[in-house]
């Protein structure tokens, strides 16, 4: 490897061992990259596809993040879109209602500083950066009550920023959807 020629046989042997190890190392890295890529694609866990922007100043005045449009919406294709906002120190809606066995797409953004958006025990885990819209897709197989903490420091009240997720049977969800266009599990 050194390009020198005046070493003895031992040096040549050492260089050979070294080259083999370097080859093995490269092999390990390739396997890891392929493995990660394969599992990700296979299980559809990928970073969001698009970059979109939103102005945190006017979220509550116009556009898809106005108060009455937040929550879970049933799309024409049967999938569900959940729109949410993170702000100091809560998510709105603070309890998100989701049906089982349905593709769910989250669209969320921040109204002030950086927040985290994490549903415990799932792979839904993204950042809310003011100015940009975050997206995540998932699917729930069984009913559950889950917590949704903000996982990025967002100010002195950060420790109080816990939302909740309620996953209910698809049939029960559809009943609710019959007479409401945006659903949440916020108690009123």
């Amino acid at each position: 490897m050194s390009g020198d020629t005046d070493h003895g046989a031992a040096a040549i042997a050492a260089a050979r061992v070294e080259r083999r190890w370097a080859g093995l190392s490269i092999g390990i890295i390739c396997v890891l990259v392929v493995l990660a890529a394969y599992t990700g694609i296979h299980q559809a866990v990928m970073p969001q596809a698009q970059v979109e922007t939103a102005d945190p100043r006017t979220l509550h005045i116009s556009g898809e993040f106005i108060e009455s449009n937040l929550g879970s919406a049933v799309e024409p294709d049967g999938s569900v879109t959940v729109r949410a906002i993170g702000q100091q120190y809560s998510f709105t809606p603070q309890c998100i209602l989701i049906p089982t066995d349905t593709p769910v797409r989250f669209r969320a953004t921040s109204a002030d500083v950086i927040h985290g958006f994490l549903i415990e025990h799932t792979n839904v885990n993204t950042m809310l950066v003011p100015g940009y819209i975050s997206a995540a897709t998932t699917r729930f197989s069984t009913p559950a009550d889950l917590v949704m903490p903000c996982h990025e420091f967002c100010g002195a009240g950060h420790e109080g920023m816990w939302g909740r997720i309620k996953v209910i049977e698809k049939s029960a969800f559809q009943k609710l959807a019959a007479d409401r266009r945006r659903m949440t599990c916020v108690a009123q």
Partner: peptide, 16 residues
Amino acid sequence: GIINMSYQLDASIHNT
């Protein structure tokens, strides 16, 4: 770290 650097596996532990 191999979990963290993976384009996809990261989601399960990101920022926890």
